[in-house]
Each structure stands twice: as C-alpha cells, then as structure tokens.
Amino acid sequence: MSFGVDRSIALRHDARRMAAAVRSRPSPIAWLIAPALLLFVLFFVLPFGVMTAMSFFSSNPVSNPNAVLTTRHYERFIVDSAGIFHDALWSTLRIGFITTIISLLIGYPLAHWMARMQSRLGHALVLMAVIAPMLTGIVVRTFAWMTILQDKGVINTLLISWGVTAKPLPLMYNEFGTIVALVHIYVPFMVLTLTGVIGRIDERLEQAARSLGAGRLRAFAEVTLPLSLPGILAGSLLVFALSISAYVTPSLMGGTDVLTLPMLIAQQVGTSFNPGFAGALGVILLLVSLAIVVAYNRILARLSGERGMA
C-alpha cells in the first residue's frame, strides 16, 4: 500500500518536474522573435539610452572628464530665448500631419482599387508602379523634385514661356515644396499598408449592406471604412513617423523657410558639435510623437468602437 502511495507521489513529482521543464524551455515562437528583439535592443533601445544619457551631460562624458550632469539642454529648449526651437517643433509636426493626410487621401483610393482588382496581372502592374519609386534613393528623388519645382525648373519655365506668369512661382524652398516631395516619397508606404488590410475585408459584407438598401457611398462609409481603420492607423503612423524624422528632403526642399527638429539635430551634431543638445531634441521629438500616437490611437479606437488598436 505504502509502495503504491510512494509511487503515485513520485509520478506526481515527475509530472511537475516535466511541466516545469517545459515551462522553462523557451517556445519556438520566442526563438523566432529573438533576432527582431535583439535588433530592436541593439539599434533602438541602446542608442536611445545613450542619447538620453548624453542629453543630461554638459559634454561627452566618455571623452571629457570634466563633463557634469545637467538639465540645461532641456531648459534651453523650454525657455527658447532664441524663439526658434518651439517653431521648429511645430513646423515638424505640421509637416508630418499634412504629409500624412495627403498621403492618406491619395493612398486610400489607390489601395482600395488595388485590393478589389480581379486581374492578377493588373494588380501586379499597379503594385510595380507603386513600388518603383522606392527603388530610387530619397536624395535622387528629392533632386528630381528640385529640377521640377525650382525657379528655372520644368513647371516655372513652362508657365513663363506660355505667358501664364511673369515671375516664377514659389514652388520650392518652402513648406509646399517640402510636403510635395515628402508625399511622393511616403505614399507607397501608405498604399502598401492599406492594400493588405482592405484586401482582407470580406467583400460580401459591403454587398450585404447594399442588398439591404445602402447606397455605394453609405456601404463604404459604414462597412468598409470602419473595417479598414486598423490599416489607416498603421499607414498613418508609419507615414507620420517617417515624415517627422525626415532630414534630407526638408533640408533640400525647404531652404530657410523650413526648419524642422531633425534639421536642428543634424546642425547640433554636425556643425555646432553639441551632442548633448542634439540628444535632448531627439528625446523631446520622441516624447511628443509618442503622445500624438497614443492620442491618435485612442481617437481611432473610439471611432471604430474598439479599445486600443495599436
């Protein structure tokens, strides 16, 4: 009898040990996620940590033993006695918002058309057309826009030669030119994100709505659009994040009319040699962007009746 009890206890112990061993062994999914996690830690968490640390030092503590802890970089931004830092932040966010909205307005109809396209060949051709600009570097594409929009560029030369205008129109070295170039660069990101989401929406839902008397527009507004909100959110966040961190395009297209935080950061690192202030500007840009992303997520979640979409 006692032997039987002992055996059952031993078996239970074995079972527990095995269960613990299984629990402690990493799942295959964890192994698959590990490289991405490692990349994230190495190329985001670590550099961001170093940048944040630098933003609290008077100079580089590694090379300068006299570096001291300070909050003066943040104070400099908050006080903004020069009157340019807050403008730069607002300008960065404004350019990001406008670029995102225009990209969405251009990208959504295109993505919808692509997602509903029956012909495989047609879909492949349109997809190629969307992706093609991404095969060229951002600098090259921006220079292309410069040749089109500058005073002696294609548009102004034609307008002047046709007598439409006597003076060249101010098409670049301002926010207009910057946004035009940014939209061109980032629309493919919006289209590709939206196409995947819209493509997964069951077409029969829209057909059902129409069979119940809804017009084409109402069926779209009440069925397809709400169901595609996750795509709108993902695409918008992607384009917004890329736009507010853009450096090359605003630098080349904006002239002196446009000053964004990434331009200020590059200035601080490359010509003012002040990595501490550059770090502080980076942290501020990230915090403001995160706040906007959270707010945007909540608004869209409320609109779609879900809680926390991203």
């Binding site: 006695s81 020069a82 009157g83 340019i84 403008d87 002196t256 000053l259 200035q267 003012s272 002040n274």
Partner: peptide, 15 residues
Amino acid sequence: RKEDIDARVTKILKG
C-alpha cells in the same frame, strides 16, 4: 557666440 548667432540669423532669414 555661434549658438546666439545661429538663432538670430535663422529668425532673420526665415520667411
């Protein structure tokens, strides 16, 4: 004086 000069000329040349 670069930081002060940068801020001043940026304001002058903007717009």
